[in-house]
Design a protein around this nucleic acid. Sequence first.
DNA 1: CTAATAGTGTCTATTAGACAGTATGTT
DNA 2: AACATACTGTCTAATAGACACTATTAG
Lengths: 279, 279
Amino acid sequence: MKIYNSEEDFLKDYDSNRYEKLSMTTDILIFSVSDGLQENYRKLNKKYFSILLVKRDNYPFKNKWCLPGGFVGIDEDLEDSAKRILAKEANLKNIYLEQLYTFGNPNRDPRMRVVSTSYMALIDKNTLNQKISKNASWFNVIVFEDDKIIDVTLDNGNEIIKFKILKTLQEKTTDRYKYEILANDSLAFDHPLVIVCGISRLKNKIEYTNIVFNMMPEYFTLGELQLVYEAILNKKLLDPAFRRIIANKVEKTNKMKIGGGHRPAILYKYKGRDDNDKK
Amino acid sequence: MKIYNSEEDFLKDYDSNRYEKLSMTTDILIFSVSDGLQENYRKLNKKYFSILLVKRDNYPFKNKWCLPGGFVGIDEDLEDSAKRILAKEANLKNIYLEQLYTFGNPNRDPRMRVVSTSYMALIDKNTLNQKISKNASWFNVIVFEDDKIIDVTLDNGNEIIKFKILKTLQEKTTDRYKYEILANDSLAFDHPLVIVCGISRLKNKIEYTNIVFNMMPEYFTLGELQLVYEAILNKKLLDPAFRRIIANKVEKTNKMKIGGGHRPAILYKYKGRDDNDKK
DNA sequence: CTAATAGTGTCTATTAGACAGTATGTT
DNA sequence: AACATACTGTCTAATAGACACTATTAG
């Protein structure tokens, strides 16, 4: 082995191909909230949480749906790569983005070795008026979960995608799960796993952080906010308890939401940091 | 653009070098618990939580300390790569291992573009009798943290390593922080960031999971367990509250710890799943 | 009036925090 | 006896869950 006298000498001589290199991608879970149909002039719209998928028009997995994603440039920061994809796919800038997990199974891409780092983005769908790319579509996410199986249905109004994940406790743990795809017809790559990973993170974080407000419009009623929580957590909440918990995260405005065939609701806004959030 | 009629045709023809490839490594935070010196025959040993570092004997960062890590093989799963390093560096198999975060700054390695996925491993140091590799050493971790600065001191008895991290709120968030290295003399790469990331994850998870028990011996007293919590959380806990919380996670044995110059303590063991954990 | 949501009051149950007290070993 | 930890009892404060009640609108 050759001896070097300085870091510089070493670097000059370094053969960066000593180990065979691989490709990396980033995949992004873009989550938002959609309104369901209004059944009745009095009733509130149901809320779904939803995810943006893209239809592949190329091999591999031609005509299957997948998460927005792309290759990481050789000089590009991982997070920048995620941001670039967000800008391209949905014309989105300056939004909530969080790294989720890195998937590194050697067979996850049929082309070659590709490691993928997934990110989760949260947006208010209403602010991005129609500018999503033409292959993209919003799917409502409906999840049934028990001890062992996670059953996910994605619905964009035209097409329904279903997949099933097997959840087993990891060895040496009582808290962590290993996920395996049991059934998946319509999603490319290992994206069912990525989606499940993101849903689980979102569910967790909504309880102890303020990330929901990234998916809310500037003004909202507490009822609407509660419906969003309920859609994500997939369970009913009690009104007084809910209001107690979020009371110090929001502030009243002097606006009201009227015209619903019932008592008008006060519009609130997020009391995060000062108002520089919205721009 | 060429048209393909099947996935197979496409794959046969695919040029895997369309995007310039990069190298990946895994770095592992191996956490454990160490006993401090006994001040007095009556007193309990202080507990520290500690981390395994390796002294680099090659460029880059020659003679600096770093996390155990290594390049990911072209056909190697990420997690397998972490396990391989654990086996090599500390002769460890079948232990708690959790993916933490993927660091992808393009300049984090002076040699070339290297993306690194970090893992956290938790072990009971006492079960791995002296078999760590010769360049490795356990460092006690002492952390001072306020709103803005995280001040970390690592101490292996011979050498003291210090670094400082600046913590700033990320845009569009009230919950997430961006970390920057303010001072770092002795650690290679961006490893101060990795360490801080791991400490923060460990602190969080110890409160709502059972991961501590991966760092405990089979039998322990509640006092010892409490000291471990206190070392990791960096604060004193109240005895009755602590005992209430962990009561249903542990079970009494008929063994006692005697000889401490004070009332003997009952030895407990982890009541996780059945006894197949330990082997 | 009615259906439907908005919003509040209050009782109860559970959990967390605090402190004081008793127990029991070694030197 | 004295020190140090082990362990428990109990009071209080804070939080979560449950239910019932009042308010207000469009049709």
